[in-house]
Design a protein around this nucleic acid. Structure first.
Lengths: 298, 298
DNA sequence: TAAAAATACTCCATAGGTATTTTAT
DNA sequence: ATAAAATACCTATGGAGTATTTTTA
């Protein structure tokens, strides 16, 4: 059986006239009769009762017609789904992100993508940079928002955000009244930082600028979550240096101050990059990368 | 597009190897490659990523595969439904019946049919004989259980039940003690009968046997429902002559007595026939007629 | 008698086969 | 070097066309 048989059947069933049906199908009447006969032979039951002067559907033909219409509906649906998937309008994508991406790039990226491609299922995983690279390799996520550097040759990446660092001090701290803070004035302050392994690409520059300012920070506490660091600063446990986007997360008892003369020595050191597997270009990923990279250029 | 393309696609998608897929399909590899290419061209998107050494489904191909499997499922379903309908195992039938068929033929017929063909939808309509013939002609019912005679040449029918008549008398009536009743002893009794129009094929024989016994029954009350006649008899309103199957409907205050010497003069006068439209032989109807006629022969 | 489906045949488009090339491992 | 898909070209099945017959309203 081929779709041709079913197409012909549908036409004859609606026209109830082999001649007209053949005309509608742009074929001659005899081959149409032949095809319907072949179909009936294959099915093992009669579709039409022909009385040489009139054609009518048998009860089985009526029941079959209803079901055959479903086949064509399902066929249209199949093509539509395939086409949409090929365009990245339909599908799913699994995204990893570092906690600090929550304050800037991630919400913008998600909202834009959801607006443009509402039928794509997005799965989100908050993970550290190193876990993201592992998950990427294992195929558990398709994209990662990480803090460089990236180790491994099987990844492609693109920096999408560069931000400056700020100093976080408790609101009643003696430095809290200044507009900008000289790094050297933090030499004797207790520091709260994240463990180096978590984001060496962010940790190392922080240590480097401190040493350039003539001191090594005295780390009294390490925290995995940036939110926790901020909490501890507000609790007068010490000060910290963090990406400036942390200011988006409003928090009582903490003030953020720019580092003086940052542009020349310090620059925009906190970077976030988007990573994906080399040679993995699903349509959905392409659409998301397009949107994100296009955006990060602005 | 033809089912061939989809069949080939499914095989390649499961084998992920054109050579093996071709073997499985009993065709050579080049035409298989060609057909898949044609399919992709028609769909407007790629189904496979071929890297000369390995074949993989694209995301669109994966999505399409799932949907295509649905097509084949729907195809199987269509054939199955058509086949079952052609055998009368699936479908619907609308049956009319006279109230008095409720006591004998109808319940047996329904139970047997339901047991054998549980997926056929049965619609039941209690109607008088004349209404049934009208509904039959209008296509509102497919079969009727009626009391002959049948007027109209466009019907086929078959008598399926012949039963004798019995006399219904109140339990405290002076005739209630006898084993059988002589019709002539009813000459002066008040009669309760149904209107002639309702079932002339039953009414006329009743009048005829009374007249053969030398009297015309004094009808004091007419009722459409046989149940009502029985009620009135039990209320001492009079006596009646009814088909013997009325005894199935147990009722306080009424006794039923055979008519004496019934075999010779009276015979089995109350008949029920099954009627259908000439040349209307749906599979469902054929199955029901088969069962019923086969049964009535016993 | 006329309208419509079925038969009988003929033809050609295309599905499928064979031989070969290309390409990636 | 080899496995596997693509390309090129050929063959032949069967879908479609034409002419005719059959059937019944």
């Amino acid at each position: 059986m081929e779709l041709r048989h079913l197409r012909y059947f549908r036409t004859v069933a609606t026209e109830l006239h082999f001649g007209r049906a053949a005309e509608k199908l742009h074929i001659a009447q005899p081959p149409l009769s032949k095809q319907i006969q072949d179909l009936e032979a294959e099915l093992g039951f009669e579709l039409f009762t022909r009385t040489k002067r009139s054609v009518a559907l048998t009860p089985a033909g009526q029941a079959f017609l209803i079901e055959v219409n479903q086949i064509f509906q399902q066929l249209d649906r199949s093509i539509d789904i395939g086409r949409k998937t090929s365009r990245g309008e339909l599908g799913q994508i699994s995204i990893g992100f570092v906690g600090s991406a929550t304050y800037n790039i991630l919400p913008v990226m998600l909202q834009q993508f959801r607006d443009r491609y509402p039928h794509v299922q997005i799965e989100l995983h908050e993970l550290t940079t190193d876990r993201q690279l592992i998950w990427l390799r294992e195929g558990r996520i398709d994209l990662g928002l990480i803090r460089p550097p990236i180790i491994g040759l099987d990844f492609a990446h693109q920096v999408i955000l560069q931000e400056s660092l700020v100093v976080a001090v408790p609101i009643d701290h003696h430095l809290a009244t200044l507009d900008t803070i000289e790094l050297s004035s933090l030499a004797t302050e207790p520091f709260i930082l994240f463990p180096r392994e978590l984001a060496p690409g962010l940790y190392d520059p922080i240590i480097a600028i401190c040493q350039a300012a003539g001191f090594s920070p005295q780390v009294v506490q390490e925290c995995i979550q940036m939110q926790t660091i901020v909490s501890l600063v507000s609790a007068n446990m010490g000060v910290s240096i963090l990406p400036s986007s942390i200011q988006e997360a409003q928090r009582q008892g903490v003030v953020y101050k720019p580092i003086r003369a940052q542009d020349s020595i310090v620059g925009k050191l906190a970077t976030i990059a988007i990573v994906w597997r080399l040679n993995d270009r699903s349509p959905t990923m392409n659409r998301l990368l397009e949107l994100t990279l296009e955006n990060s250029k602005l």
